[in-house]
Design a binder for these strands. Structure first.
Length: 639
RNA sequence: GCCACUGUAGCUCAGUCUGGCAGAGCGGCUGAUUCGUAAUCAGCAGGUCGGGGGUUCAAGUCCCUCCAGUGGCUCCA
């Protein structure tokens, strides 16, 4: 038992400390570990973050929170959000602060305010710098509810948040100089901790999730405990921006866009090679796993989409045209076509699972402001398939799909994550069936041992799904693959098969795409490898560089040899210096460069330089044919 | 679709604030150089300054509008 008026605290190293009740957490930590205490920007008591200045009145496990700790990082981001709010109010006094939470990367603060301008932001940054230099303290104040409501008079947003605080619980505010903000805390001790603050930008946000609300602006930022850490972050960000597929793609001759076709990619000759290689990769798997490729119309009369439910749930995204007095929709997905094929004849359970794959161009009228290079387009091709299965076959098919995902993404050395999306507000069918479908998906995920997140309400209107996400160079997540379990659309199309029992049953359909669309997948892949595609995907796998013009005929002969071996090789024929042509090959991200001069001509060899590596090694032409052939055949990621 | 910003040669960008002859580097073409692993030298060509409208003696520059792009929001593969 602790002595009266004292509390007993367990420190992270297991040591025990008994201090007078009300001792500030920071003081206890400083006494415990003076060396580390300078890094602590907050503390935690039994895992609950508290201010360093918070008086400790209950026993428990006390620890310091540093920036390296995710919770510590959040404290810093959230404190930075307060600083931004305080600064903005000094620039635009009638702005109404709403919320300012930390995010995965940094933080944001939303305001009800007139549209901001870059000048506002400049002034904001100046004010913030001054406040940081002033090292203003973050002071916690706890007040009764009625006083709290008085404090935020004039700000309906904050009043609303106070209403949400459970009755009986004190309402806390944090004071920074003259600025007071409703806040649960905790915060860093003072604004001097925010020296590594960086305002990333601002934008309008759609208030309350629906267009047409009060004008709101979001200021986004990120904070580090020091300038140096901020500088490192900015440098890394700059490098990531240099990998942007929207710049890399056209420069490498892969794809392009024109103003007259926003969101509709042009695949250039080199890009088409990459797409075909990707297709080949997927088609090999289709063959192995019993898929049949089909091709169905790009357009259907409106009634087909009414049957599928898309006319009700997706119409604003469907391109429409009109012929013979009927409205046609350009298909945004392949499922209706596959449904019609299934329905075209009577089906037996012996045919199931029936796996129909289709790589048709899909068109989706995405809103103009959402387009983004290849990762968000209006015309796309998916590695799409629809599996018509019996109830008993679902799990087996799902397991096979998870295995294929594992294999496919590993080939590209991409990191991916799973998300289970459940019944949305607007849905077809019965709740019980949805619950069963969701349970099945979750069971297979759990049994496969992979980590996954659950996104409630994010499912498709016809069924729950497992989505796969990968991230671009700036860390923005993009959904690629998706596995959707659908009891609805087959029934709406009146699909049935005759079971072993002689009765007719509706099949269940698994909609699945793994790489997603060639467009998005390649966009992210290009950023992932900074344009340096693995050899099997490279449009030019080997560039032969003759040392002088004299060596060109010999180089051409070698070229033919490589071409005959199925290696995509080209020739560097310009009269530029050797160094310059090597440089060009490197900039073109050609994985292998073969130099050919007098020495190589005499002994039938090639001097091989691998992209990104200095120096070369000489090997016999046939040896090179074998070596490159092997790298390509095995789809090695590294050259 | 919403808010802000951006749009000048194939690319990257000066010039726009303060209206007065459209510029550079890279790339391209031509010629010289024939070279051993990331930029040889010289010359030349290339632009209705995103489109349209307006103000003005005069517009790349100021105003309006449309289009496209960028960063977010919303939505989604």
């Amino acid at each position: 038992m602790a002595a009266p008026g004292t509390v007993r605290l367990v420190l992270p190293d297991g040591s025990l400390r008994e201090v007078p009740s009300g001792t500030p957490a920071g003081e206890v930590l400083r006494a415990w570990n003076p060396g580390a205490a300078g890094k602590f920007l907050a503390a935690s008591l039994d895992g609950r973050p508290i201010d360093l200045a918070a008086p400790v009145r209950t026993a428990g496990r006390l620890a310091g929170l540093a920036f390296s700790d995710p919770k510590g990082r959040e404290v810093l981001q959230h404190s930075a959000a307060h600083l931004v709010a305080k600064s903005l109010l000094e620039v635009v006094p009638d702005a109404l602060p709403t919320v300012g939470p930390p995010t995965e990367e940094g933080f944001y603060y939303d305001f009800e305010v007139r549209p901001l301008t870059p000048e506002d932001l400049t002034k904001l940054a100046e004010r913030a710098a001054a406040i940081i230099a002033a090292r203003e303290r973050f002071e916690r104040v706890e007040v009764p509810r009625d006083e709290a409501l008085r404090l935020v008079a004039g700000n309906p947003h904050k009043q609303g948040y106070i209403e949400e605080v459970p009755a009986g619980e004190a309402v806390s505010f944090y004071r920074t100089g003259a600025f007071v903000d409703l806040c649960r805390g905790p915060h860093v001790p003072d604004t001097g901790w925010l020296a590594g603050l960086h305002v990333l930008g601002f934008s309008a946000i759609t208030a309350g999730g629906t267009p047409g609300g009060a004008p709101r602006q979001r200021v986004r930022g990120i904070a580090f405990p020091s300038r140096a850490e901020l500088e490192a972050y900015l440098k890394q960000r700059e490098e990531a921006e240099a990998r942007d597929h929207r710049a890399l793609g056209p420069r490498l001759g892969l794809f392009m866009f024109v103003d007259e076709a926003p969101g509709f990619p042009f695949w250039l000759p080199k890009g088409m090679i990459v797409v075909r290689e990707l297709e080949r990769f997927v088609i090999e798997h289709f063959r192995d796993d019993g898929y049949h490729e089909v091709r169905t119309p790009l357009m259907f009369a409106q009634s087909v989409f009414e049957t599928s439910g898309h006319w009700t749930h997706y119409r604003e995204n469907i391109f429409q045209t009109e012929a013979d007095g009927r409205i046609y929709g350009v298909k945004p997905m392949n499922c209706p076509g596959s449904m019609l094929i299934f329905r075209s004849t009577s089906r037996s359970y012996r045919e199931l699972p029936l796996r129909l794959a289709e790589f048709a161009p899909l068109h989706r009228l995405e809103r103009s402001g959402t387009l983004h290079g290849l990762t968000r387009v209006r015309e796309m091709v998916q590695d799409d398939a629809h599996l018509f299965v019996t109830e008993e076959q679902i799990e087996g098919e799902l397991r096979k799909l998870l295995a294929w995902i594992q294999r496919a993404f590993t080939v590209f050395r991409l990191e991916w994550s799973y998300e289970l999306s459940t019944r949305p507000e607007s849905y077809l069918g019965e709740v019980a069936q949805w619950d069963r479908a969701e349970a099945t998906l979750e069971k297979v995920l759990r049994e496969s041992g992979v980590a996954y997140r659950v996104s409630p309400g994010e499912g498709a209107f016809y069924g729950p799904k497992i989505d796969i996400h990968i991230r671009d160079s700036l860390g923005r997540p993009w959904q690629t693959g998706t596995i959707q379990l659908d009891y609805q659309i087959p029934a709406r199309f009146g699909l049935e098969y005759q079971g072993a029992d002689g009765a007719l049953h509706p099949p269940i359909v698994i909609h699945r795409t793994i790489l997603g669309t060639w467009e998005r997948f390649l966009g992210v892949l290009l950023e992932h490898c900074a344009g340096r595609l693995p050899p099997w995907l490279s449009p030019v796998q080997l560039r032969i560089v003759p040392v002088t013009e004299r060596h060109e005929p010999a180089a051409r002969a070698r070229l033919e040899r490589f071409a005959a071996a199925g290696i995509r090789a080209d020739l560097s024929t310009s009269t530029d210096t050797l160094s310059k042509r090597i440089r060009e090959a490197e900039l073109d991200k050609v994985p292998y460069i073969g130099v050919l001069g007098d020495r190589e001509m005499t002994d039938g060899t090639v001097a091989l330089r691998v992209h990104g590596q200095k120096g070369s090694r000489t090997l016999a032409t046939e040896e090179l044919v074998r070596e490159l052939g092997e790298k390509i055949r095995t789809r090695s990621f590294e050259p």
